[in-house]
C-alpha cells in the first residue's frame, strides 16, 4: 500500500463540523437540512451523495465532567467519518463504465463525466458511502480532494480541522503515527481506545483509518467488511449450474417427443 491517507483521531474531535462545512464549500455540494439524530447535533446522518464528511455524535452515559456537560446530561464522543478509500474497493471493482478509478495518490475517484448512474457501486460499498444523486443522476462520494492533492495541498477537511483530529499525509508515516498515538493514549489512561483499520479483511486495508473510543460498532464501523467480489466465484458457479439445468432440461423435454 502506498500513497496518502487520513488518520481521523476522534479523541481530539470537538464536533465543530468544520470538516463537513469545508468539504461542502470546496466541493460545492448541497446542504442536508436539519433533521437531528438522537439527542445530538448530527443533521447529516450518514455519508451519502451530498455528505462526504460526516461528524458522528456518539451519546454515552451520564458522567459528570465528561465533555463539559452538566451532571445530569449524557456525555458525547465525536468522530468524523469519510470514504475509506479501500485498497480493494468494492465500488471500483463493480463500476461497469470504468468511471471509478484509483488515483496516483492511492485514493478512489469517480469521474463524473463518465458515470452513467447505474447505481451498481451503491450496493458494492461495504461502508455505505457512495450514493446516486437523484437529481444529477450520477454517483458521488469523497474525492480525497484529488484536485487539491494534485496541487500539493491537503484535503479541505484536514486543512479546516482546528484540532488536528483529521490528519493527512503519507500512509506509512500516518500508520506509525497512529500506533504512537494509541500508545500515548493508553499510557494516559484511555483504556478503551481502538484503532479501526481492517487490514485482515478482504478489503485489504483502507486509506482512512480511525482512532475511536469504545467499540467501533457504535460508530457504525463494521468489524469485518467484505468486498463483494469475494462472492463472485460462488455466484458464477451457480449461474453455470442454472444454465446447465436449463440446457439439459430443454433438450430432455424436446427429446421425449421423438
Amino acid at each position: 500500500m502506498s500513497g496518502t491517507a487520513f488518520l481521523t483521531d476522534s479523541t481530539l474531535c470537538i464536533g465543530c463540523k468544520a470538516c463537513e462545512v469545508a468539504c461542502k464549500e470546496w466541493n460545492n455540494i448541497p446542504s442536508d437540512g436539519f433533521d437531528w439524530k438522537g439527542f445530538s447535533y448530527d443533521n447529516t446522518g450518514s455519508l451519502g451523495h451530498s455528505t462526504w464528511r460526516h461528524v458522528k455524535f456518539i451519546e454515552g452515559g451520564v458522567v459528570a465532567g465528561l465533555g463539559g456537560n452538566s451532571p445530569d446530561l449524557l456525555s458525547w464522543g465525536f468522530s468524523s467519518d469519510v470514504c475509506k478509500h479501500c485498497e480493494n474497493a468494492g465500488c471500483l471493482e463493480a463500476c461497469p463504465t470504468g468511471a471509478i478509478v484509483r488515483t496516483e495518490f492511492g485514493g478512489v475517484f469517480i469521474q463524473s463525466d463518465v458515470c452513467n448512474g447505474c447505481a451498481y457501486c451503491v450496493v458494492a460499498c461495504p461502508f455505505g458511502v457512495v450514493e446516486r444523486n437523484p437529481d444529477a443522476g450520477m454517483a458521488f462520494k469523497c474525492t480525497f480532494c484529488y484536485d487539491r492533492q494534485k496541487e500539493e495541498l491537503k484535503p479541505a477537511c484536514a486543512t479546516a480541522c482546528p484540532t488536528e483530529s483529521i490528519k493527512f499525509g503519507d500512509i506509512d508515516e500516518l500508520r506509525g503515527e497512529a500506533e504512537d498515538r494509541m500508545a500515548r493514549l493508553k499510557q494516559a489512561g484511555f483504556n478503551d481506545v481502538y484503532l479501526y483499520n481492517p487490514q485482515d479483511s478482504s478489503v485489504g486495508g483502507i486509506h482512512a483509518f480511525f482512532i475511536v473510543r469504545g467499540d467501533p460498532e457504535r460508530y457504525n464501523l463494521p468489524p469485518s467488511p467484505e468486498v463483494p467480489t469475494t462472492y463472485l466465484r460462488k455466484g458464477w458457479v451457480s449461474a453455470a449450474i442454472g444454465a446447465g439445468l436449463m440446457l439439459a432440461g430443454t433438450l430432455f423435454a424436446f427429446g421425449q417427443d421423438k
Binding site: 448530527d42 464522543g77 458511502v129 483504556n191 478503551d192 460498532e217 457504535r218 460508530y219 457504525n220
Partner: peptide, 19 residues
C-alpha cells in the same frame, strides 16, 4: 467503566451501515 466503551445494540442510532 469508561463511559464510551459499551456498544449500543443498535450501532449508531440504529441507522443503516449500508446504502
Amino acid at each position: 467503566r469508561d463511559p464510551l466503551s459499551k456498544a449500543e445494540l443498535t450501532g449508531y442510532y440504529g441507522t443503516p451501515v449500508l446504502k
